[in-house]
Computed example of a mutant assay.
Amino acid sequence: MSAIVRGKVHKYGDNINTDIISPPQYMELSIAEAAKYAMSAIDPDFAAKVQKGDILVAGANFGSGSSRETSPLTLKYLGVGAIVAKFFARIFYRNAINLGIPVIECSDADKIQNGDTIEIDLETGIIRNITRQETYQGTRIPAHILELINEGGLVPYLKKTI
């Protein structure tokens, strides 16, 4: 993965919890099957319209709820290239990183709109809104975490380094 992620935005609001991201009634399915229902509680068409590299943008408290990995796993399976939010629930934040999904906190996430194309420099945290010709400052990803993300997550990183 490059240090630059560019994609179309799928925008949601505050308090998107893990039950919304990956509805619990589909937990027993394979990740491939469960991914078809990702975000379906608030956007029934999400799984059908998200394309590899697209960027999910949300408000405050993204990923609150349970600690199960199915939520970030379904997003990864669908090809979400990064997630930007005002702030994340810590367990979701760590699970996403462990699975190789870049997560950026940005206090200006509300300025980004559904359908915008944005470009994120993961090393600096700078988010360029190509559609609106605006720039926002998000959190940067430290080099050692970026290396883990570039390897596809914690397990592939450990397999390579141990």
Score class of each variant (00 low, 15 high):
Leu154Ile: 01
Phe88Asp: 02
Gly125Tyr: 10
Asn15Ser: 14
Gly7Pro: 11
Thr70Trp: 10
Glu151His: 13
Thr18Met: 11
Thr131Val: 00
Pro72Thr: 11
Ser71Trp: 10
Tyr12Glu: 11
Asn129Tyr: 03
Ser40Gly: 00
Lys49Tyr: 02
Ser22Asn: 14
Leu154Ala: 07
Ile20Val: 15
Arg94Asn: 03
Val57Ser: 03
Ile55Arg: 04
Ile20Asn: 10
Gly63Leu: 05
Lys111Ala: 13
Val57Asn: 03
Phe46Trp: 03
Ala35Lys: 09
Gly125Asp: 06
Ala47Arg: 04
Gly153Val: 06
Thr135Pro: 00
Tyr93Gly: 03
Lys11Asp: 08
Ile4Tyr: 05
Arg90Phe: 03
Ile104Ser: 07
Asn15Gln: 13
Glu69Asp: 14
Thr139Asn: 14
Thr124Tyr: 06
Ser66Leu: 11
Arg90Tyr: 03
Met39Ile: 00
Asp121Leu: 05
Ile97Thr: 08
Glu147Ala: 15
Tyr136Thr: 04
Ile55Lys: 05
Ala41Ile: 00
Glu134His: 05
Arg94Val: 02
Ala32Lys: 12
Phe92Asn: 10
Glu33Ser: 12
Ala143Glu: 15
Leu148Phe: 04
Asp45Gly: 02
Phe62Ile: 00
Ala89Gly: 01
Arg128Gln: 09
Gly53Phe: 08
Ile162Ala: 15
Ala3Val: 07
Gly59Met: 06
Ala143Met: 09
Thr74Asn: 13
Arg140Leu: 13
Arg90Gly: 08
Arg6Lys: 15
Gly138Val: 06
Gly13Thr: 11
Ile118Asp: 01
Ser64His: 07
Ala3Leu: 12
Asn98Leu: 05
Gly7Phe: 07
Asp19Leu: 10
Val57Ile: 06
Ile149Phe: 09
Ala47Met: 03
Thr131Lys: 00
Tyr77His: 15
Val103Gly: 10
Ala143Leu: 10
Val57Lys: 03
